[in-house]
């Protein structure tokens, strides 16, 4: 099985204080730390497991500047065989990005393409399925289990409420991988050092043959939601409070 995994480097904003820059179009990134998108890490691990079980290759791909290479090196250290970086500014528009990736992938040899189900920065979750459509191959989103059959894959898709939906999908195919599909291995520093010898190709958009396409979305502004740090206390007797909480949970879709 030859698998291509598309990965992205994202800022860790789970806990950091996030502010919007003066232009109102971007967040201030100087004090943030960056790492491989969590979902992508599971995707890389899954691809490597498929290779280890059977045989084949794993190629990791990212679009972005040289500062994005560390996530490729890390993936190589995890067990990927080859990495490709398309040397251009990471397009924020999913459609523009999908167009670049599709152009690149269509000339590669592959059975499977993996994406993370979404990225931790914009949470759009569209790039993978778009690329599949552009390539004209089958896809499944939110995949949390993969079993290789002859010429096809049995894939489990995570639905709401813990239910799974099982599909048989013919190869070649593209999956967007959900966290929890596996337990990604640790990548040691010495492992990263040793993987320096593995090939990392840098391609310009011209090498890839990228054509210009129109972005789907234009950003008007970014802003911080009104502050509301401390918990909103639900008052009343235990029964009243419980009733309010129950309605709130229902409204938010807990059950």
């Amino acid at each position: 099985m030859d698998v291509i995994v598309c990965v992205k480097k994202v800022p860790d904003t789970a806990e950091a204080d996030v502010s919007v820059d003066a232009g109102g179009r971007e967040i201030n990134k100087e004090r943030l730390t960056f790492a491989i998108n969590e979902w992508d890490n599971y995707a890389v691990e899954e691809a490597i497991r498929l290779k280890e079980e059977d045989e084949g290759t794993v190629t990791v791909v990212t679009v972005g500047g040289k500062d994005k290479e560390d996530i490729l090196r890390r993936s190589l250290a995890m067990g990927a065989d080859k990495a490709i970086r398309v040397d251009m500014e990471d397009p924020e528009d999913s459609f523009v990005l999908a167009n670049v990736l599709c152009t690149l992938i269509k000339d590669q040899k592959f059975d499977l393409v993996f994406f993370g189900a979404q990225s931790g920065d914009f949470n759009s979750g569209v790039t993978g399925a778009m690329v599949a459509r552009m390539l004209g191959i089958s896809h499944a989103a939110m995949v949390n289990g993969v079993e290789v059959l002859d010429g096809s894959i049995k894939a489990s898709r995570e639905l709401e409420g813990g239910l799974n939906e099982i599909y048989e999908i013919k190869l070649p195919a593209l999956f967007t991988i959900q966290t929890g599909i596996n337990e990604p291995r640790y990548v040691s520093i010495s492992g990263i050092r040793k993987a320096r010898k593995k090939p990392l190709d840098v391609m310009t958009p011209e090498d890839v043959g990228v054509t210009e396409v129109k972005p789907m979305l234009s950003l008007e502004k970014m802003y911080l939601p009104p502050p509301g740090k401390i918990a909103e206390i639900i008052g009343g007797s235990p029964e009243e409070a419980a009733a309010k909480l129950a309605s709130l949970l229902k409204e938010k879709g807990a059950f």
Partner: peptide
């Protein structure tokens, strides 16, 4: 849309098209 772990809100305009596709967050 709420982005960056819900810490930032963003307003976006969809490009002109015959039909636009929208997927809304549950709840």
């Amino acid at each position: 849309r709420s982005v960056y772990n819900g810490k930032v809100l963003s307003d976006l305009v969809l490009r002109e098209a015959e039909t636009s596709v929208i997927a809304i967050r549950s709840g």
